[in-house]
Amino acid sequence: MESEILRQKLEQLTGKKAGIKQFGRQDSKSLFGLGSQESDQPVILDDNIWTPLYENDGRITAVSVEMEGLSAMEVQLVHFAVRSFATALKATGVKEEGEMEALQLSKWLNLQLEQEREDTELPDDIALKSRLFGDMIPFLLISENVHNAPISYRSLMKLLRSYFDSTVILIPLQEKEWLILARKELLTDGDDKEEEEESEDDLLSQTSMGLHELIANEWVGVFHLAVAPAIVPVKGLTGAVALLRETIILGRIFQVGEYIHLPWELHLERLVNSIPDARRRQLLGQIGDYTSVLSDKEMLQTLETFFEMECNVSETAKKLYIHRNTLLYRLDKIKQETGADVRSFGDAAIVKLTMLLYKVTKRK
């Protein structure tokens, strides 16, 4: 039985509003006497009776029921029900990783996203809310391993803690989809002088590459990872998840062969993807026939690398491991077949747009 079901059962039993909350370390110690024999006893706070459910990393998660109008017998029943549930949880070991709190937040998040509510603040009955007021960096991890066994919450959390620290929060969203929240301070650990030379986007990109490599080395298969700038999760979590999901969708369409997707690198792709399909096909017809070039893997890779290197011939040749003259030959061939000279800004912009339109329409 999940903690959310327990909360609902308590409301049915008492006719009173029930909730679940995770207390901070200081409140856990002062209110519940964490570490003492009395730590499993209920306390009265704000006209509610709070009964400890379990402890995780020095924080008590407790279940509350409104006190007004409850009989002594009902109070005893509430305490018995919660402690019985806590005993069952302890036997399974689930509570050790905070999975129950994560599942509660997951249900709420998925409901908000289904209803397209991207600016909703977390309600007070979310157990993890007290840990989501500071700046945190959101990552979204999606596995494409259809035939492999699902990765367990505990094993992934253990891996994440080895990369970040004990404060990382893991939230399973859909099957084989996980939201990861890490402290923003992870970007500022280390040498201050070196950090001044790198932008936040660069640091996020490097962190994502390291995280993806760690996961890919641990489990066989394909994993997509997206990251967004720091947010205050208590207010911006739903919008961040929506952005990350869209980023991975766009990455799968426009960045085939890549597995780390960054929203600030996909602005033009987002615009192209928003154009209705009929209009995209119409635009392709108006621009001209680029099929011979864009259907050629070598030419397509040449163009993609050329644009990635900001149309720098020398840097593109180095990246492709070809001679400069070989690259110039390919660019001249593209001009002969399409009439577009990608060394010119105007033509380069048209070719880049055509590439994106071709990629998204080719998938239909």
Rank of each mutant, 00 (worst) to 15 (best):
A240K: 02
Q22L: 09
T188C: 05
E66C: 01
E246W: 00
F23K: 03
L204P: 05
L103F: 09
M1R: 10
D189P: 02
G93Q: 14
T326C: 08
M355E: 06
E55T: 13
I49M: 10
Q104R: 09
S130M: 04
L13V: 11
G236I: 03
H224C: 10
T238V: 06
Q12F: 12
P138A: 11
H323A: 15
D341L: 06
G285F: 09
I334F: 10
R154I: 07
V342C: 09
T238Q: 06
S166I: 08
L156I: 02
E96C: 00
L211A: 01
K129A: 11
Q336K: 15
L181T: 07
K16L: 06
L320T: 03
Q282A: 09
L328F: 08
L140G: 02
M73G: 04
E4M: 14
Y329A: 08
K359A: 13
D46C: 04
K184N: 11
L132Y: 05
I60H: 01
I5H: 15
E144P: 00
K235H: 08
K16C: 07
L211H: 08
I137F: 09
F306E: 05
R161L: 10
M67A: 11
K176D: 14
K335N: 12
E118H: 12
Y163L: 03
E218S: 10
R83W: 06
A216R: 10
R161M: 15
R252W: 08
R270N: 07
E218A: 12
P138N: 12
Q282L: 11
M136W: 03
L53T: 00
I334K: 05
V222D: 13
V351M: 09
L6T: 05
L173K: 02
A62E: 05
V146G: 03
S274Q: 14
V65L: 03
I275R: 01
Y259I: 00
S292H: 12
A240L: 05
G210L: 03
K318T: 01
Q12A: 13
E121R: 09
V75Y: 04
T354A: 08
P42A: 00
G257R: 10
E114I: 00
P229G: 01
G285Y: 07
D119G: 02
Y358H: 15
L203W: 06
G251S: 06
S314F: 13
D201C: 02
E96F: 10
A230N: 08
L320P: 02
Q26S: 12
L244M: 03
T188Y: 10
V313G: 06
L225K: 01
A216V: 06
G58M: 11
I180Q: 01
